[in-house]
């Protein structure tokens, strides 16, 4: 009996902290708390840079493997597909080793900087964007191949034409990459070091604050993270729907 009462008290106390944390989180969000907003801004900046960098590599690779027939193409496709599910901590470890003082890129002094986080996230999402691009462009190539060849379009021109023609579908691929970049925690934690005000992003802050027991900031950041992802995806959906109506 005594045991049961004790458990009830503990539970109510727990709910109380939850409620307090929730209220504090709301306060932080409504007040646009400066420390919190800095974390959000850095997160968005790092992930956007990573995705832009990744697109520069992934879109050409995806289109080339979809349209071209060259030695090593199969191997690239297999690696791309396999690496779609790359564990972020392993990517973090590899980038850490490359950027650490003794590593090949050590002299650049990038470890524990936002640049290192951009590199790690770019490495993580490049296979995802490249593999999705390949699928989207290959499907279009199937439909367009004869027509483009008939018009005398070479492989390179065809790839450019297809990337432009599938631009609205590719937006979805790029957003998949952006979603992955903003949501991952392992890679940025290792190469960024979660330094307050320098390399602390939403995910690493949530992990840290939760383990410290500061649930308010963790909850607020979590809510913002989800809000961002939902906003991104719904705008992508709206854009592609509008494009489908306009361009067919």
């Amino acid at each position: 009996m005594l045991e049961y009462v004790k458990r009830c008290i503990v539970r109510v106390w727990a709910i109380d902290t939850l409620r307090d944390a929730g209220l504090q989180a709301l306060e932080l969000m409504i007040g646009l708390d400066e420390a919190m907003m800095n974390i959000v801004a850095l997160s968005v900046q790092v992930s956007l840079s990573a995705v832009v960098l990744s697109c520069l590599i992934a879109l050409p690779i995806g289109a080339a493997t979809a349209v071209g027939r060259f030695p090593g193409r199969q191997a690239i496709i297999v690696v791309m597909n396999a690496f779609m599910g790359l564990p972020p901590v392993v990517v973090g470890l590899i980038v850490y080793l490359a950027l650490s003082r003794a590593g090949p890129l050590g002299p650049m002094g990038l470890l524990f900087t936002p640049t290192a986080m951009v590199l790690a996230q770019a490495l993580l999402v490049t296979p995802i964007i490249a593999a999705l691009t390949r699928q989207i462009v290959a499907d279009a190539w199937e439909e367009y191949r004869e027509q483009l060849q008939s018009l005398g379009s070479n492989g390179f021109r065809s790839a450019l034409t297809l990337i432009w023609d599938t631009r609205f579908s590719l937006l979805t691929a790029v957003l998949a990459g952006l979603g992955r970049a903003t949501a991952e925690v392992g890679a940025v934690m290792i190469v960024g070091g979660n330094i307050d005000g320098v390399t602390r992003v939403m995910t690493t802050a949530i992990a840290l604050e939760t383990s410290k027991g500061d649930l308010a900031l963790a909850l607020a950041l979590g809510a913002i993270l989800i809000l961002l992802v939902v906003m991104l995806n719904s705008s992508a959906y709206l854009i592609s729907e509008a494009a489908r109506r306009r361009y067919g």
Binding site: Y144, E146, Q147, T161, W164, T166, R167, Y247, G248
Partner: peptide, 21 residues
């Protein structure tokens, strides 16, 4: 061809694309 393949751009741009090629 039996089924025309058009690019996602204006009718005019489809023609100028072919001419540019």
């Amino acid at each position: 061809f039996q089924r025309p393949v058009m690019l996602r751009r204006s009718a005019l741009a489809n023609l100028t694309h072919a001419l540019s090629l």
